[in-house]
Design a protein around this nucleic acid. Structure first.
Length: 285
DNA sequence: CAAGACTCCTGACGGC
DNA sequence: TGCCGTCAGGAGTCTT
């Protein structure tokens, strides 16, 4: 699924092809693709606009247009963005003709992806936490952020308003690397473990970007048509029953917040549950 | 505020 | 072989 490393890969590969190009015409297929616009208005507004820059925010890609507006998109599960290549007409959701004769295609098997044209980026994006690879996110930030909430680590790290860009795969991989159980409560993570988690997230994302993302099914491909390589480095994701590469214990899969969640029961010890006796005693004080 | 359920969608996969 | 039920999953929305 396109998470931060996949979107980063897409943006890096498409940037030199799109920067400076002018959209001569656009076509949109399907009523649900666009947010807050109609296909007619959207295509008219985009036509003639020059693409100044292509960048990423969380899992969103952002095209800065020469009139100051931004074209913002989310690939969700199965969306793909690429120039030319072989378009599958069954799944093409948007097509942008470029002034060099090529076409920017947005395809999506499951139709969850979305596009939006906005005057300002902040108008288009929901509330989003900081970028995990930015200087803002360091051990001290993480320690404070975890302590100030009472959330299970897994759903908290998936929450884009907490931290931008992590999805199911990279949360599981990061928690394993940090040796933190997905059901640990955020406010009970010791400070030094928050530092370890920050480092783990940066290492996992860095390695995944270096590998051009993860492809474990038929969906994600880079704009150049290649599968990513990080799935070969998965420590836990999709490895239920297989031995942990660190300790040999069988990887387990549970469901947390309707999400498949993978972890090593030995490297990531279960949080100590407060017994009912302890809880009663604590509450009576 | 936290957490769970539900929704969207369709290809892949397991079972019989 | 083929049919059918189930699953996966990001994020918005609604409910508890």
């Amino acid at each position: 699924m396109p998470e931060l490393p996949e979107v980063e890969t897409i943006v890096r590969q498409l940037r030199p092809q799109l920067r400076g190009r002018t959209v001569t015409a656009a076509r949109v297929h399907g009523a649900d693709l666009l947010l807050r616009s109609t296909p007619k208005a959207f295509c008219a507004a985009v036509a003639g606009r020059r693409i100044e820059e292509l960048r990423r925010r969380g899992k969103y890609f952002v095209l800065d247009l020469d009139d100051g507006r931004v074209l913002v998109g989310h690939l969700r599960m199965t969306g793909r963005l690429y120039v030319d290549g072989a378009p599958d007409p069954r799944y093409t959701r948007a097509c942008f003709d470029l002034d060099d004769g090529r076409r920017l295609l947005f395809t999506d098997v499951r139709k969850f992806g979305r596009l939006q044209l906005a005057a300002r980026l902040d108008d288009a994006l929901p509330p989003m936490g900081p970028e995990p690879l930015s200087d803002e996110v360091d051990g001290a930030w993480m320690a404070t952020a975890l302590a100030s909430r009472r959330r299970l680590l897994k759903p908290l790290l998936l929450d884009q308003s907490f931290l931008a860009g992590l999805g199911n795969i990279y949360v599981d991989e990061s928690l394993h690397r940090a040796r933190l159980h997905p059901l640990r409560s955020s406010h009970r993570v010791p400070r030094e473990r928050a530092f370890a988690l920050t480092a783990a997230i940066r290492e996992v994302l860095g390695a995944a970007i270096a590998a051009e993302g993860s492809s474990f099914d038929a969906f994600y491909r880079t704009p150049e048509g290649r599968p990513g390589g990080f799935q070969d480095e998965f420590a836990v994701y999709g490895r239920e029953g297989e031995p942990c590469r660190q300790c040999g214990a069988a990887i387990r899969r549970i469901v947390v917040g309707q999400r498949g969640t993978h972890f090593c029961p030995r490297c990531q010890p279960a949080p100590r549950r407060r017994s009912s006796r302890t809880r009663r005693a604590g509450e009576s004080l």
